[in-house]
């Protein structure tokens, strides 16, 4: 990243666990770990321009909200999909029940034929 010359920075080394999460993130987002680290650093750089008290708390609440909204959207999509699947399974179930009864009848008919 291009660091601001006026600012001072603290080096933080990612723990083993954090590195694992970083690799996972890179995979999920079709990105690479270096790019993600750069984006996080750029964000921190932007964020540090605002020296407002509680801004970090606000940020966490905001991020949590965005995540929840995303999950709500995913669940809404999944609800529509599940409803479709339920209807399809119910249709199948109806057909299979009908088939089952016919097959039982058929079995009886064949059985009696077999005895001829």
């Amino acid at each position: 990243m291009s660091f601001s010359k006026k600012k001072k920075y603290v080096k933080y080394e990612l723990s083993y666990k954090q590195k694992q999460k970083l690799f996972k993130l890179a995979n999920q987002n079709d990105s690479n770990p270096d790019k993600i680290v750069n984006q996080i650093e750029e964000f921190l750089d932007r964020f540090s321009e605002y020296d407002e008290e509680d801004l970090w708390e606000k940020l966490l609440s905001f991020l949590h909200l965005k995540m929840l909204e995303d999950k709500i959207n995913q669940k809404s999509d999944d609800i529509i999909e599940t409803k479709k699947k339920i209807n399809q399974e119910k249709k199948f179930l109806g057909e299979y029940e009908e088939d089952y009864l016919t097959i039982v009848e058929l079995n009886r008919a064949l059985d009696s034929l077999n005895k001829v």
Binding site: Y12, Q18, P33, S48
Partner: peptide, 16 residues
Amino acid sequence: MSEKRKFNIWIPDSTA
């Protein structure tokens, strides 16, 4: 990607 590789994040002093 080597798991032994180190990854650093540079955090602005004021934030840290």
